[in-house]
């Protein structure tokens, strides 16, 4: 039975997305700008549409009429709007990013760093473990046949659901702070790296393997001179998937214990107190972090591949 789950591109399917993204970067900036502007326009329309009800209710309670211009102005200046206007979020971002000391608890940079440090620690750990396991899988048939089906199947299950349990259990045995979140980030980045790295280490064709055999290369030589270099593009593709997953893991890891630091904590407290502007600014900060992380890996990838002579 050729398991459909193991079909080419099935498990590490997200790497295609990354490839497309890279290709898309070369495209003209004009269309992208148009789409981004359209999104902002839609956002403003949505602001008016979603917040109008509250303004009308207030006006009805005060027993007065509101004109259209007043209505529009009011929908963009509410304290707890259903949907804050982009400029409200921008002001909040300015207040919490630029106007605060970055060590202050009110600084979003501080919260972002709390989340990022857990993300990076977990991501590093998960990546190293993933690469080691992949090397083992490629060189040991028993390991391949025992572990690989589970590693692939693990990509189809919502492992993020384990996050609250890890946090609480580690909390109950006295481990707090960065470690539980890092563990969640680690296991979320672990499986994509294993799957991507195994296909990368297996990517050399029969011709190349035969060539090394004619040189009577040892297993170690085949590994260092052929398999490892050939696996690097695959590794980077799965690293991008892994780091995005790590960030989500760290954010979700902050939810269950009612943590007071980190982007997840900002999301949660925002949702408790109806502070929508805070939620949106935390969300945008998370988006910026994700973009920076994926962008950084992309930069390293380009540099490494160029150095290896593998760039397109």
């Amino acid at each position: 039975m050729s398991a459909p789950i193991a079909a080419p591109g099935a498990g590490a399917g997200r790497s295609g997305r990354v490839g497309l993204w890279l290709r898309g970067r070369g495209a003209a900036a004009g269309p992208v700008l148009a789409v981004v502007l359209a999104i902002f326009a839609l956002w403003y329309v949505g602001t008016v549409a979603l917040n109008a009800q509250w303004t009308l209710d207030q006006a009805a309670r005060a027993d007065r009429e509101v004109g259209f211009a007043e209505l529009v102005a009011d929908t963009m200046a509410q304290d707890r709007p259903m949907l804050p206007a982009p400029h409200q979020v921008a002001v909040e971002l300015y207040d919490t990013v630029i106007a605060q000391e970055i060590t202050s608890r009110r600084s979003l940079v501080y919260h972002a760093w709390v989340t990022l440090s857990a993300t990076l620690a977990g991501f590093g750990f998960g990546t190293v473990l993933g690469i080691l396991l992949a090397v083992g899988i490629v060189h040991n048939r028993a390991m391949d046949m025992s572990v690989m089906p589970w590693a692939i199947a693990s990509q189809t299950i919502p492992i993020l659901a384990i996050a609250p349990m890890i946090i609480v259990v580690l909390n109950s045995i006295g481990i707090q702070g960065i470690v539980p979140k890092a563990i969640i980030s680690a296991y979320l980045s672990f499986f994509p790296v294993v799957v991507g790295m195994v296909s990368g280490l297996r990517s050399p064709g029969a011709m190349q393997m035969d060539l090394l055999r004619t040189y009577s290369a040892s297993r170690g030589q085949v590994f260092w001179k052929l398999r490892l270099p050939a696996s690097i593009p695959y590794l980077f593709a799965s690293l991008k998937v892994g780091i995005a997953a790590s960030l989500v893991g760290a954010i979700v890891g902050e939810l269950p214990t009612g943590a007071v630091q980190g982007l997840g904590a900002r999301l949660l407290s925002g949702s408790y107190y109806g502070q929508t502007v805070q939620i949106w600014s935390a969300l945008l900060m998370a988006a910026v972090c994700a973009a920076l992380l994926v962008g950084a890996i992309g930069a390293v990838q380009r540099a490494v591949l160029r150095r290896m002579g593998m760039d397109r």
């Binding site: 993204w21 998370a286 994700a290 973009a291």
Partner: peptide
């Protein structure tokens, strides 16, 4: 639209949307 939406879509697909 394709040239505009694809990079934006790819960018958004990499964001922590659970947020």
């Amino acid at each position: 639209l394709q040239r505009g939406l694809l990079p934006v879509g790819n960018f958004i697909a990499a964001l922590p949307i659970v947020g």
